[in-house]
Simulated scan of single mutants.
Amino acid sequence: MIELFAIRSGTMYELVTESVTLQGQRYQAPRSIQANIITKQGSQTYYRVSEGDTVLFKWKGKELFRGIVFSRTPVEGKLTFTAYDMLQYLVKNQDVYVFSNQRADQILRRIGADFQIPMTSISNTGHVIKSLVFKNDTSLYDMILKALKETKRQTGRNYQIYSAKGKMGLRAWPDPEDVWVIESGVNLISYQYSTSIEETATRVKMRTSADEQGKNKKKGSKSEIVVIEQDKAGQNKYGILQHVETVTGQINQPQLQKRAKVRLAEKKGVKQEVKSIQALGIPELQSGLPIYLKIPEINVKKTYWIDQDKHEFSGVKHTMTIDVVEKNSMPKGDQA
């Protein structure tokens, strides 16, 4: 069922393959494969890959990956290699840029052209970013993520950088109407489950920065706003577990109170974690897509987003291991 080819100068060479592992992570470019191939059996030699070769991986006739070989390890008639899709060039390259009055898709197009990265369909992101400055050497991927984060902040729309058939693209984040199901007793093999109050809060305290209020007065002055939201039932059971935040920017007390209520709702109660979910392989599933997880024995019946995926192919067997998150939120910090 595995079809793995090396492409050189427009010619395809089929590789004698033992196994392929395909994996990726949400908001972490690129996707990659690691393949184990046979290069010699007795007097018979087979095609081997070199760094810079393009490789194409198909499963049951459907293309799942196309990328560039970056590393190899040959051992006694066999060879293990790792290849990355085109988003690798966004991660490996750094530069300084100043962008003025450009949309995120225009920024992506300029970067792609400057670094000779082949491109496919690029969606118009709509929002014009007045200024985006990178004075220090920054990875191209982090630049684009920052532009996409600014776009989402202004429009509420989320976009995904992807690689398909050896070309980089940009699309609205996939949110399919039909969601694949992983279900206990059907296609679920194993999982790890835990509960914890390590990250739980029974009280949230939020304050504004005095400087941000424009008064430049000491703490405790009228320029500082402090609000508290409490989970009394949680305090009776777990004690006081206080989460504190200092909020920057112009904000009034009702707005701060609302924000504290939202944060308490996020952090109250026992937290469940389901990870290392191993299941029968679904080739279409990859990080960033929704999945409905149904495990009645731990009372889990809901939709999650795939954070990491790892697909393993050997012979006619395909299994996958995924980690999931409840919300498809963008990473915090300068990287986005």
Rank of each mutant, 00 (worst) to 15 (best):
H243A: 12
P331K: 08
H127V: 08
S43M: 11
D307N: 13
V325L: 14
R8C: 03
T21N: 07
L90A: 07
T303V: 15
F70A: 06
S184P: 00
T21D: 08
W180Q: 09
K332Q: 11
K167M: 14
K152C: 10
Y191H: 07
R259S: 14
E14Y: 06
D175I: 10
K301N: 10
T321K: 09
I7Y: 03
L15C: 04
V226G: 09
H311P: 03
F115Q: 03
R259P: 01
I182F: 03
I298M: 13
Q335G: 00
M12C: 11
K167G: 01
G333A: 11
Q154R: 13
I129A: 01
E18N: 14
G156N: 15
V300L: 15
T120Y: 03
A164E: 08
G239A: 12
P118S: 10
F57H: 05
A6I: 05
N124A: 13
R109Y: 03
G61T: 12
Y141I: 07
L188R: 07
K58G: 02
P174E: 14
Q23Y: 15
V20Y: 04
N216R: 15
V98D: 04
R72N: 07
S71Q: 12
S50R: 08
T200V: 04
G112L: 04
V128L: 07
D105Q: 05
S19M: 15
I298A: 11
N36C: 11
Q250S: 09
R8G: 03
Q106F: 04
S223F: 04
